[in-house]
Simulated assay, not measured.
Amino acid sequence: MLQEQEIRRRLSSVQLAVGQAAQALSAERNLPGELRDYIQRLDRQSDSIVEVLALRDPTRIVKLIDDMEVLGARARRVCASGLPLTPQMKAAVNHMHNELADFKSHLH
């Protein structure tokens, strides 16, 4: 398991990446509902990071990141499906998923 300081740093990076994807989402006009739903769910889960950290429960941190990574992977697949999305949207989703996948790999 990672040290608490490293977990906090990575969670902060995840929150930032999710926030950037949520901002890109608000700038998009014709987003598929599926992608919008994944990013909104990730944004809500990102809001719970502070609460999960306060509990200092490694199991809940791992579960939260696992769940978020699954949603991030789904959002990434939608972006890669050939839909006409802006480069900013695709980049934000890819960055978000990469942050989540990297964090997940270090937690397991």
Score class of each variant (00 low, 15 high):
M96W: 02
A101H: 08
T59Q: 14
I49T: 09
R36S: 05
R10P: 00
R9H: 12
A27R: 14
L25T: 06
S48M: 15
Q40W: 10
S12G: 09
I61W: 03
M89I: 06
V52K: 07
M1V: 08
I65Q: 00
G33K: 08
I49D: 02
E4P: 04
M96C: 06
M96E: 03
R76A: 08
K104W: 13
I61G: 01
S81D: 11
Q45V: 03
A54H: 08
E4Q: 11
R36E: 06
Q40N: 12
S105L: 15
Q20E: 11
R76P: 02
L53C: 04
L83Q: 11
I39V: 13
P32A: 11
A22Y: 12
L42S: 01
Y38D: 05
K90V: 15
M68E: 02
R76T: 07
P84Q: 09
D37H: 10
S12H: 09
D43T: 11
R74F: 09
E4G: 04
A73L: 12
L53R: 05
A27V: 10
L100S: 04
K90D: 13
I65L: 00
I65H: 00
I39Y: 03
K63P: 00
P84I: 07
V18A: 01
H108K: 15
T86P: 06
V70L: 15
L42F: 02
M68D: 03
M96Y: 00
V18D: 01
V70I: 14
L100D: 00
L83K: 10
V93A: 01
L11H: 04
V93D: 04
V78D: 03
A73C: 10
R76H: 08
A75S: 05
L31N: 05
D37M: 11
S105D: 15
P58C: 09
L85K: 02
M1K: 07
S81I: 04
D57K: 02
R10A: 02
R44F: 10
L55S: 06
V50P: 06
L100E: 03
D67T: 09
V18W: 01
R9D: 12
L83G: 08
D47G: 13
D47Q: 15
A91P: 05
R36V: 04
R29Y: 13
I7V: 07
I7R: 03
L85M: 06
L2E: 00
N30D: 14
P58E: 11
G19W: 05
L35E: 03
P58D: 12
G33L: 07
E28L: 04
L16I: 10
M1S: 10
N98Y: 09
L107K: 08
D102C: 08
A91G: 07
E34L: 07
D47I: 10
Y38V: 02
Q88S: 13
L85N: 03
D66W: 06
L55A: 09
L2F: 01
M68H: 07
C79F: 05
F103S: 02
K90M: 13
I49P: 02
E51Y: 15
V93E: 02
A73D: 14
L2W: 00
L42K: 02
H95N: 08
D47E: 15
H108I: 13
R56W: 05
D37T: 10
L64P: 00
A54M: 12
G19F: 05
G19T: 02
Q5R: 13
V62H: 01
Q88P: 07
N30V: 12
Q45I: 01
H108P: 14
E4W: 10
V70M: 13
A101I: 06
N94W: 13
P58I: 10
K63R: 15
